[in-house]
Design a protein around this nucleic acid. Structure first.
Lengths: 333, 333
DNA sequence: ATGAAAGCGCTAACAA
DNA sequence: TTGTTAGCGCTTTCAT
């Protein structure tokens, strides 16, 4: 009984290697008795992979801790990893001295310990991702990421369609002047939302009214002007923005949604009043996480099979909690 | 410039290998330029370790998902792993056909991919753990685990002292007949709690009144008997048990804690009434998780340094929400 | 049907 | 100061 025989048995190649059933049983029994366990490092050195999937978050978060934007994705990633029989590596150690999470550090690409990785989070430094792609390392990004010169695999919510439909609903409800509130930081997912807004406006022939500002720069004066100009609904990229609106509206005794409709484009638990959650675009985090892992594993198993490398998953439409028909204008009706 | 030179530079042995600073810079620059990354499988084959710490949960839970008993431990584990510069492997794939999570499966000990592992959860099958210990694999168990013939490293809350003190507080409040409610399943952590209860009773010279039953076997009749026998306080191992007590007490119009004091020995978010949480023993989950990783990493770095391999961390004493002085008996005062 | 041997990419001892 | 070389434990091809 040689090394080769044992290897064949362990790898289920007993039959194809024409090893007699008796020998196979003997090997298995001996393995059990001795407590032998194949060294994963050695087999992975031989190019067999180690059934490890990495998870890398660009922002410095503890992936496990719950109250986090990324947590929902992670659950999906984990569920699918279990289903595929992979274990998960949480890359938590990749923070460099500047507090940024890097993929490469002093020559060692940490991700390499895993057969493939799921990347999530925003980074403005696309160079690491580009390099990863150049190096041929298998990865899937959660969230659309455009990196010039590289065909990045990603899975994202369809923010464009989701926003378009949400704005369309406002239009259907009778709104004709709909404000769009965006952050100054234009990452892909935010640009997608804005594009959806513009598409809906264009289709309905109403004017796009986008404002890109950081929440703390928004002033009551700006709000009063907007309302004065006839805006009856706001669509905002984030809760931090809608929260400002809620405050401004309260100052002017405007009720949400009776006097003003508000939709946020990232799902939240908060709302303008206790018990009233914001109407918000639902992000299918779990499904995205699962899809990312599925895509990654497929790529790992059959690298050469052509397959779509970018996946868009539909958003859940906003509940109508802070959306209503525009108020009937006094003196107009 | 040879392989050895590069290796020395990467491993920070440039100085000790007396490699000129110029060569070192050249190597580093080239590394950066080429995007070279040392193969972690190969270095770990060479016995260098791969800075991966495993996390294995015996119960079939998704380690990441939050509302879980284990989540608090996991956060601690993760925080300390980050601090020590290790990445985490979540072993999610170790479920066998019977739905049990095994350490060994068809000859391959999955844990071996990580330099060491943190184990958590209850298993009645100690054989895997015993074998792991015999094989010399470095691991730390979260929760006390007694495995005959093996000196298991573990970190646990000091349930014995915590329970003792909690019962002592009841005694100090004037209770002299204190019921103990336990599950029929006697795992180490539960046995520890019971021991603490018995110790407090013995010290105060009051009778220990333990009852071991599953929640659904507890009947109103039993409760009435207990109250009739003069019991004025219950200490229970779990919320499922105190919930039964709350129901029984409600049937007899007994108020908690005015008529009956109740303490649970595992922290919970629930309580007998909305807004009233159970007085419960606080488990320092985060600290336990951190301590486990610290112990594991110490063992990894200095296997031969003698150190305590079992750690007990103090519990937080119960808040007084469902604890009060016993009612003054009618006709006695 | 089984065994011998090469080599995966690295590290470290040693030779030059 | 740098290069050569022998493994680490496994898989796999080829010879027996």
């Amino acid at each position: 009984m040689s090394q080769a025989t044992v290897s064949a048995v362990i790898n289920g190649r007993a039959a194809s290697s024409r090893i007699p059933a008796e020998t196979e049983r003997l090997v298995k029994d001996t393995i059990r008795e001795l407590g032998y366990a194949a060294n994963p490092a050695a087999r992975s050195l031989k190019g067999k992979g180690n059934r490890l999937l990495g998870v890398h978050t660009f922002e410095a978060v503890f992936p496990i801790s719950s109250r986090d934007f990324y947590h929902g994705f992670l659950i999906g990633v984990e569920e699918q990893a279990v289903a595929e029989g992979y274990d998960l590596v949480l890359f938590t150690s990749t923070e460099d001295d500047n507090g940024e999470r890097r993929l490469y550090r002093d020559g060692t690409n940490r991700l390499n310990v895993a057969d493939g990785s799921v990347l999530l989070g925003i980074t403005h430094d696309h160079s690491d991702v580009a390099r990863l792609s150049r190096d041929g390392y298998p990865f899937v990004h959660i969230g659309r990421r455009a990196v010039s010169g590289a065909d990045i695999a990603w899975v994202s919510a369809d923010y464009t369609a989701g926003t378009r439909d949400a704005v369309q609903d406002l239009i259907d409800a009778g709104h004709t002047r709909i404000g769009y509130l965006g952050l100054t930081d234009r990452t892909e997912p935010l640009a997608d939302r804005e594009a959806g807004y513009r598409a809906a406006c264009a289709a309905a022939g109403i004017p796009p009214l986008p404002v890109l500002m950081n929440p703390h720069d928004l002033e009551q004066e700006w709000f009063d002007l907007a309302i004065g100009s006839g805006i009856t609904a706001f669509v905002a990229e984030e809760e931090s923005l809608t929260d400002r609106i809620a405050a401004f509206a309260a100052h002017r005794a405007l009720r949400i949604p009776a006097d003003l409709s508000v939709v946020t484009l990232r799902d939240t638990s908060g709302g303008p009043y206790p018990g009233t959650p914001w109407s918000s675009l639902g992000i299918p985090r779990n499904a995205i996480g699962r899809a990312a892992v599925r895509l990654l594993v497929e790529t790992l198993h059959e690298p050469d099979t052509p397959r779509p490398r970018q996946l868009l998953l539909a958003c859940a439409p906003p509940a109508p909690s802070t959306v209503a028909a525009p108020p009937t204008r006094q003196g107009v009706s």
